[in-house]
Write a protein that binds this DNA or RNA. Structure first.
Lengths: 146, 146
DNA sequence: CTTTTTGCAAACAATTTGCAAAAAA
DNA sequence: TTTTTTGCAAATTGTTTGCAAAAAG
């Protein structure tokens, strides 16, 4: 699925400015990799981006895709989805609850909040599918990291 | 950090009943692995559990920990944190937004909702740290999966 | 006893790294 | 022409699998 063309152009302009401002070089592969993510409403992973970009740049390598993705992430031009790219964690709390996640160290703590268990999001997502549950992730800095 | 002892006992009783009901065998390693997760408020990953359990069961192996963790997850006794144990995905949408995630196929779509950008969670998490942002993940079944 | 589960070792998949050649500024 | 970035290949990390021996019921 595709993002509106105007929005894509805007994102690419912003990207070019940010790369220049950071003193990084504007390479063909950086542009194409960014364009791919900026154009898509599903959020592709590295291999997904690689396969798409390879159509237009057959010599691109997967490790360049990875490096570029993290560079763009560090520049704040894109963001990595999910808590982290680390290992899966497990939780034995079966009551509905939400999570506080420390963006520095990855610490996770549960909290409960009745009001949030029934958040009214139906209208926002009815075009996508039906709801199973709603989970809030509060990102922050934990007490031992600040 | 540790969960209240009463709560731990309850969780273990529930675990034993569920294992029996599923026709699985109640092994020493399953009990110890479950006890470890049920006792902890941080949500350990496989190696974390492995290292803790190894103290009491030096012969346990990491692959048994993995197998057990997924078995317990399938039984609904614990749950895996984060969207999935797959690869990292990237997002070029820089406006504050939330996600709809399909629990079957992993499809992710953005949605915006002004009201949710300022959710009042401060009281719930002030013992943990300071807030950077609040993100809602709506889990559901997407239209092409149902 | 019969069937499931474990531990071991080897296989895999996702991601990262060192280094010389190629491209950007 | 200097410095960054790329592509390749090899290394690493997290996780999974086949199989014979051990444990559960």
């Amino acid at each position: 699925m595709k993002v509106d063309n105007n929005e894509i152009e805007q994102r690419i302009d912003h990207f070019k400015a940010a790369v220049k401002k950071a003193g990084l070089k504007l390479t063909h592969q950086r542009l194409e990799i960014f364009r791919e993510i900026a154009s898509s409403v599903d959020h592709p992973d590295a291999i997904g981006v690689y396969n798409l970009v390879k159509g237009r740049m057959p010599t691109v390598s997967l490790d360049t895709v990875y490096r570029t993705l993290w560079t763009l992430n560090d520049l704040g031009l894109i963001s990595a989805l999910g808590t982290s790219h680390e290992s899966v964690r497990f939780d034995a709390n079966l009551k509905q609850h939400h999570h506080f996640v420390c963006v520095k160290c990855g610490m996770v703590r549960d909290f409960e909040n009745e009001k949030f268990n029934l958040l009214e999001v139906h209208k926002d997502i009815e075009e996508f599918g039906s709801i199973v549950d709603t989970h809030i992730e509060v990102r922050g800095i934990c007490n031992s990291c600040k």
